[in-house]
């Protein structure tokens, strides 16, 4: 089955989609596609068949999202915890992933036509090398596309991602690019695997479970969470509409909470800059406290210098990550 599902909505679906689009539509939706194995048990089919049907549903859901003007989707495909499953199932899932990424490379023209950019978020080094190379190749091939975005979380957990972001910042400190005092909420967000995406507006989990299971914990702190009881392979256009309606009901209060949070973030950054300037004056100044306007000026100046440092560091980080992928992808061509 293919990554791109062409097809149109029927009349009623189209009308409903247009009604929904009259209100605020999420710009980024995240899915925990739960229930493939329960679906297989229910239908008395092979477990692997359940996973395949789940993938087909993903292609269909991506089409619905585009038809609802949702340009970005993130899905939880494989958690680091999933390595604890039986050897047979893990191998089966890795095989499925290999097939799908090979298929993706075959469908390059179609992806280009629709402008689909595919990113894989997670610790690739935990995967078998041939799969790593395939993934890198697929990501590099669609890197320039910018009409819609699909982020596949593979060998991912949110805690791993956050710890990794801290490691990247520590690397920046080691390289002398940033100072420890430059570490902030905004900088940490920029060091996550998801740094190229806005935070999800809506997170959907299927099959009735009511927890996040280590998925995008940082990014969804101000997202609308919708838990639906339907099993993932049975997900329908109407389930998606239902979730979007719930998002719209929550939209105003969540926006308000986000603004409050952003104000607080700005305040904290200013406070941190003030503290750094005070420390600098204490060490290098003549001991006399600077007067109001002079101090304001010094803080503003310090802020600019900090921003420049952070910008250089993020540039270096991006280069590091890009060259890691490009290198992996080129190995794949040789092999």
């Amino acid at each position: 089955m293919s990554w791109i599902r062409e097809g149109e909505l029927n009349l009623i679906e189209r009308l409903s989609a247009n009604v929904l689009k009259a209100g605020p539509v999420p710009k980024h939706v995240a899915f925990i596609m739960d229930g493939n194995r329960r679906f297989a048990r229910k239908k008395h089919v092979d477990r692997q068949e359940g996973h395949s049907q789940g993938f087909n549903k993903l292609a269909e859901t991506l089409r619905w999202c585009l038809q609802l003007d949702i340009p970005e989707v993130t899905v939880y495909a494989f958690s680091i915890e999933n390595f604890n499953r039986s050897r047979e199932e893990v191998d089966g899932l890795m095989e499925l992933a290999k097939l799908k990424f090979l298929r993706l490379l075959d469908e390059r023209d179609k992806l280009e036509k629709h402008g689909v950019c595919i990113r894989v978020l997670g610790d690739l080094t935990l995967l078998p090398l041939d799969l790593q190379q395939l993934i890198a190749k697929a990501v590099v091939a669609t890197r320039e596309h910018n009409r819609c975005f699909l982020n596949v979380c593979f060998a991912y957990t949110s805690r791993h991602e956050m710890a990794n972001a801290v490691r990247e910042m520590a690397w920046g400190v080691e390289q002398g690019l940033i100072k420890a005092s430059d570490v902030s909420e905004a900088l940490l967000s920029e060091c996550l695997y998801s740094s190229n995406s806005p935070n999800p507006d809506l997170l959907i989990r299927t099959s009735g479970e009511v927890r996040l299971s280590d998925f995008l914990l940082w990014q969804t702190s101000h997202s609308c969470l919708v838990f639906q009881s339907v099993l993932w392979p049975e997900y329908s256009f109407w389930n998606l509409c239902d979730a979007v309606i719930q998002y719209q009901c929550n939209h105003a209060s969540i926006m308000k909470a986000r603004e409050l949070h952003q104000d607080e973030q700005r305040r904290q950054q200013l406070e941190a800059d003030h503290a750094c300037v005070a420390e600098l004056l204490h060490h290098h100044g003549n001991g006399k406290p600077a007067d109001g306007p002079r101090r304001q000026e010094a803080v503003a100046e310090y802020g600019l210098r900090r921003e420049a440092r952070v910008k250089d560091f993020l540039e270096a980080l991006r280069n590091k990550r890009d060259s890691f992928l490009t290198q992996l992808a080129s190995q794949a061509t040789v092999a």
């Binding site: 996040l212 299971s213 280590d214 914990l217 702190s221 609308c224 969470l225 929550n250 909470a257």
Partner: peptide, 15 residues
């Protein structure tokens, strides 16, 4: 009425 965690302990709510 808000379906969101609104910043509640992101690290600790894994499970």
């Amino acid at each position: 009425p808000v379906d969101s965690t609104l910043g509640f302990l992101p690290w600790h709510i894994r499970l």
